[in-house]
Design a protein around this nucleic acid. Sequence first.
DNA 1: ACTTTTACCGACTGATTAGTCGATCTAAAT
DNA 2: ATTTAGATCGACTAATCAGTCGGTAAAAGT
Lengths: 186, 186
Amino acid sequence: MDKQKEILTTALKLFVDYGFHGTATSKIAKEAGVANGTLFHYYKTKEDLIIALYIDIKLRVAQHIESYRDEHTEYKEHFKKQFIGLMLWSLENDYEFRFIQQFYFSPYASLMDYEEIQKLSKKGCEELEEAMEQNHIKKQPIDYLIAIVNNYVFGIQQYLRQSKLTPEEKKEVIYNSYETLWIMIH
Amino acid sequence: MDKQKEILTTALKLFVDYGFHGTATSKIAKEAGVANGTLFHYYKTKEDLIIALYIDIKLRVAQHIESYRDEHTEYKEHFKKQFIGLMLWSLENDYEFRFIQQFYFSPYASLMDYEEIQKLSKKGCEELEEAMEQNHIKKQPIDYLIAIVNNYVFGIQQYLRQSKLTPEEKKEVIYNSYETLWIMIH
DNA sequence: ACTTTTACCGACTGATTAGTCGATCTAAAT
DNA sequence: ATTTAGATCGACTAATCAGTCGGTAAAAGT
């Protein structure tokens, strides 16, 4: 693993465990096994690192959801696959998910403008808009829909994290939760 | 306004705008118009202040929801009143809401144990459990239900905050959103 | 009246932090 | 072979921060 990647991985873990300001850059560097200067060679400021990490994770999520794209099935099934795919991914990428949440509700989020954030999940949004035009789902403001779906995902993930369910039971919950989501947007 | 209250109010604003570690205790004291030592007279540590603020807001929310209690109407209407009451409160207490969200997803949340957090909205949870037993709402794990409802509220609030709707339009959204919530839990 | 407790002040400190800088070390380009 | 450019190092610094302390003033208790 190259040093830059190592920095990101370590930063992710520390930021989630101790918060943004609660994590010193020197601690990240030390734990990542690189020199202090190396961190600042790749990221000019701590803020840069935080935003780079956010974008990195967002892109990985988008890419993963993308891999579930299947234009041939009907919309409900197509959307279901993506939702389930995302939730299963969240089970195995807990830190990534928690980082996104922490970032969302932190003052750092307002450093990126709203447009730029949305751009990172552009494909997904476009698909929702398209589905709305074709009357597969209820007509409502796209921002509203996104907020609802996002927070539903967060809710399920949060429940699963603090629950003591077995992996099998968690998967069961995920599969069942889709029906409710569909009812919400349909 | 007494000094202690002034400290809490100032801390709320600064924590939301700059984050927990991004806000220096000296800055809180200065902006609240009290001496540095006074802050530490009331709160032994910064962490104490953060948790006291969280509890203060949680209690105010609980109290406000409580004021909408009305045992005489049927459950759907009763729950609606509480939901609408909460959402309207959130419109006028934006900072309080954002603080709760920030706290939830910060490492500070894990300093309080889960039990203690739930206790602060005990009444609401008990009511939900009761309603479930009497088959007013779908039978499902109480934690699941709470996570879903909580995050739905967050979602609507988040949408309203970043939207450019007039106060009247916002109220319209709130009233409409209840139907979806009811479907979700029913 | 006097004693104790509480409210409040602000200068001070030891520790920590983000970020800098000049040096060394590659590895590719010419 | 020599230049150039990026990668990596770690000691250093100026600034900042959480929390302390010794003191004064005002309430509260007796």
